[in-house]
Design a protein around this nucleic acid. Structure first.
Lengths: 309, 309
DNA sequence: CTGAAAGCGCTTACAG
DNA sequence: CTGAAAGCGCTTACAG
């Protein structure tokens, strides 16, 4: 129905002001995804999964980086979604009292990817990273490794803490070498921090395997091992966590625990859409199970040059 | 100044509605960064640079992925920034008539990272990727390579087209093997597309060097070369472009052309802030010069195991 | 200094 | 069916 006023509007390039519209209808048709570190491929994976679910429902997805700081996250919770988006998927790496407090105050739909205090009444979807650590260690144990090092992320983060505890538990259960020198903590879940941590580890001891707290830490470790003339996996086997796409392009390809990033993202998106549709519905908590993806970096004995999965 | 009404407001958890505020003051204190592929580390680098500049000025940065589709980008231009953000940094991978048209209509501050038609009157900052290709080829030529393959991204993208032309030009200038079989086009600037393209290349011929259209394509190629038993760089030298952080964790470390992602991001952010402050200022166009980062993947003869930079 | 009113640009329920 | 009015939740200029 093209009237003269329509034509005039088109000619002048008139566009409705989205802000005014949103204020009136109380919907923005936008969702936000807040992550600690956009540089980590695992969040990119989640983002793609979320976008896949929400885009077909007419939402635009905005990504916001909180740089792992609680202050940022808090600020985001209080203002971003309080107006600029209809709902939020939050994947915080640190969950402290301040954040829990902020979460308690939130009045709009939000889904958290990660572990939360039970009483918060917020939909959330979790990885089973303790189970993932166990799978990785059992696998390395089967490969004959006994002096297994762990390059973990910061222990004041939720995944760092969960994985650290699971490591200690399984070292006992599998009767692995309990040497404390085998455990190092990277300043961050990044390549750069992983490199520094791997140097520290290898300066004091050489293990027969290394488990990385995530793929980036494992990949950085592979590089440092290489520089020090260690063969992977013959001298040192390496396993990562998250099974990001970069795990498939290292040499040898990196064995990694798939913590279900894609499925966590998809599930979180669905929970958010459900809550958007029906705010009173029962609080949901889902857990995604891990899977071990065995590749060349940990296949001792049966290892062939150029192996990949 | 805490009055009783203040206390009551705090108690009830009152938060001003950001949308209503923005409508009134005509500012959102948000900026948007729209990229083709958040999964590409080069955009993460740009994002960090932009955030570094804009955060201290009190802006929040929202990232939006346009998946390389012009329709998405257009939609974003018309609505996102038309209300939800005060300005936009856009890094489009495809610039076609439709996008140029949409850009022509834009009435709010925008800075484009990438090459644009001159008459558009939009601030923009460019890489010199033609110069980058030349540096890479001259370097490989010095290393004694003559049959140099090029695994480029799609030729209908701005970087793909520029790099493709520069490659052809320099093959002539350096009198390299002009065999058409040495040029393949990946479906995307991604690891997965790079792997497929590298398989196609190596199925028909084995070059003495490969230039990747970006680091992801080069890294995927390294993996495929490895699987086929080719030594890097002894049999085949490899060079990437963008110098992302992953270039430093391959084995051997990947020689790459730094196209100044960080500086482009920082410059774009500054141009945007300047325009936000003074909308009438003269249109700026800046170019960031490339630098070659030589590492083990292309150092023939002088190559040592475990070399890195 | 305090408080009421106007208005940002839309949408929608309502009157004509 | 068409058109004018009310109101979303703020901020700010203005009157008292």
């Amino acid at each position: 129905m093209s009237t003269r006023v329509q034509d005039a509007a088109d000619l002048l390039g008139y566009r409705p002001n989205a802000m005014a519209r949103s204020l009136r209808v109380n919907r923005t048709q936008q969702l936000a995804f807040a992550v600690a570190d956009v540089g980590n491929p695992v969040y990119v994976e989640m983002m793609r999964a979320i976008e896949g679910e929400t885009r077909v429902r007419g939402y635009r997805l905005l990504v916001s980086s909180t740089a792992g700081s609680t202050a940022d996250t808090r600020d985001l919770l209080e203002s971003l979604a309080h107006g600029y988006a209809d709902g939020l998927v939050l994947s915080p790496v640190r969950v402290n009292a301040e954040l829990v407090d902020a979460l308690r105050r939130v009045r709009y739909p939000i889904v958290v990817i990660g572990t939360l205090p039970k009483d918060l009444g917020i939909d959330n979807v979790r990885a089973n990273s303790a189970g993932g650590v166990r799978m990785a260690l059992e696998h390395l144990h089967e490969q004959g490794c006994r002096r297994i090092a762990f390059i973990n992320g910061p222990s004041d983060t939720v995944p760092g803490s969960a994985r650290g505890k699971a490591f200690a538990r399984n070292v006992r259960a599998l009767q692995l070498d309990p040497d404390e020198d085998l455990r190092v903590e990277a300043a961050d879940f990044t390549l750069a921090a992983g490199k520094a941590a791997a140097e520290r580890l290898l300066d004091r001891t050489v293990p027969d395997a290394v488990l990385g707290g995530n793929d980036l830490l494992a990949i950085a470790t592979m590089q440092v091992l290489r520089e020090r003339g260690q063969r992977i996996p013959e001298d040192v086997a390496v396993v990562g966590m998250d099974d990001t796409e970069f795990a498939r392009v290292t040499t040898p390809a990196l064995t990694s625990v798939d913590l279900g990033a894609h499925e966590r993202g998809r599930t979180a998106a669905r929970l958010l859409l459900d809550r958007l549709a029906e705010s009173g519905r029962e609080v949901q908590r889902k857990t995604v199970q891990p899977r071990l993806r065995v590749r060349g970096s940990s296949m001792r004995g049966v290892y062939v040059v150029g192996d990949s999965a």
